[in-house]
């Protein structure tokens, strides 16, 4: 049986205390919410924190409040089940209900949190393997020895000399952003709150991410994601299309998130297209957005916008499916997403 390494488990009762432990202990301490990402990685020895800080005892961290009119606030500890089944999310942020409801399995969604999904470690089929397997292949840039986090935490990590196994000549790690909710939240224009030992700040979800498989989050180690703020839905229609081998369990190897607002005559006033699962962070597809904006959602417009994501979608060979297949599916999935929105009645 795979088992967890030893660690110290702390359960602060408020965020400030949690931040303080993180600040005091540095990278030796890690946060756990649902545990669905961190525990498997601890069992496979990618992470060996000395201290785990459980967020379960912190009140209100799982609260969902607000409305479609004023904007909805999702506590970071709200489970993916709670988010995807929330009536306001389903009615006014349908793409998010779809994205959160497409994560892994219903059981894991009962455990995994929306905050955890946003902070999900990047994935790679050279990295998400057991200690033995990684040793056999000679480790990889993201985890260049068997010692695991936190020994391997500093920013010189990518100078360990151990190559990226996907792109051996590369100076960076190409592990893949595999969160379903991030592309959708970016498309919806959501913000999030980070609380750290030095205070709190609100940033756009997009700004949480770096295009780097190892240093994929921009937040400081002692900052904790506490809530996600959705703007007023304002008639925005949204959807999420996910490529994966099976309709359950599997991470996205391409995620297409679309949010758009149409005028009464059908003219697109505002469009956001974000792709996930094809690189180390979610990518906004500017050209597609430009093509869509100011026009109606005709077949031709949809086709043109869809084709425009073929070039910027540049996956590598480190997930399920052939990389070129994933690239090829980007326009197809966007076309289907846009067609779905085009045929959808206007959002009340």
């Amino acid at each position: 049986m795979l088992r967890l390494p030893k660690f110290q488990y702390l359960t602060p009762q408020n965020i400030n205390d949690a931040c303080k432990i993180l600040a005091d202990q540095g990278p030796a301490a890690m946060i756990v919410a649902g545990g669905t990402d961190i525990y498997p990685k601890m069992k496979r020895r990618q992470f060996l924190p000395k201290t785990l800080i459980g967020l379960r005892k912190i009140d209100d961290l799982d609260r969902i409040s607000g409305s479609a009119k004023s904007g909805l606030t999702l506590g970071a500890s709200a489970t993916l089940t709670e988010v995807s089944s929330h009536s306001v999310v389903q009615e006014s942020y349908a793409g998010l209900a779809k994205a959160a409801g497409a994560v892994s399995t219903p059981i894991l969604r009962n455990m995994g949190t929306i905050g955890g999904n946003l902070c999900l470690d990047t994935r790679c089929n050279y990295y998400d393997q057991t200690h033995h397997w990684r040793q056999a292949i000679g480790w990889c840039m993201k985890a260049p020895s068997g010692k695991g986090w936190p020994v391997l935490q500093d920013s010189k990590l990518n100078q360990s000399g151990v190559p990226c196994r996907v792109a051996p000549g590369s100076s960076r790690c190409w592990a893949v952003s595999s969160t379903d909710s991030a592309p959708m939240l970016i498309a919806l224009g959501a913000k999030l709150k980070l609380i750290g030992s030095k205070g709190e700040r609100v940033i756009s979800v997009k700004d949480l991410y770096n295009d780097d498989g190892m240093f994929y989050l921009s937040k400081a180690h002692d900052e904790i994601l506490t809530e996600i703020q959705l703007p007023p839905s304002d008639g925005i229609k949204s959807t999420y299309w996910k490529l994966r081998r099976r309709e359950s369990f599997d991470f996205p190897v391409l995620g297409v998130a679309v949010a758009l607002k149409q005028a009464k005559d059908g003219t697109v006033e505002h469009a956001k297209v974000v792709l996930g699962g094809i690189g180390s962070c979610p990518f906004e597809m500017a050209e597609a957005q430009n093509i869509l904006t100011g026009k109606r959602l005709t077949e031709n417009q949809i086709e043109a916008a869809s084709q425009s994501v073929f070039n910027p979608a540049r996956p590598l060979d480190n997930t399920d499916f052939h990389l070129f297949y994933r690239k090829r599916m980007a326009p197809v999935y966007l076309k289907r997403a846009l067609t779905e929105l085009a045929t959808m009645g206007s959002n009340v």
């Binding site: 309709e247 369990f249 399920d320």
Partner: peptide
């Protein structure tokens, strides 16, 4: 990663 059919 070794894919087997689910209920779906």
């Amino acid at each position: 990663d070794y894919k087997s059919l689910t209920f779906k």
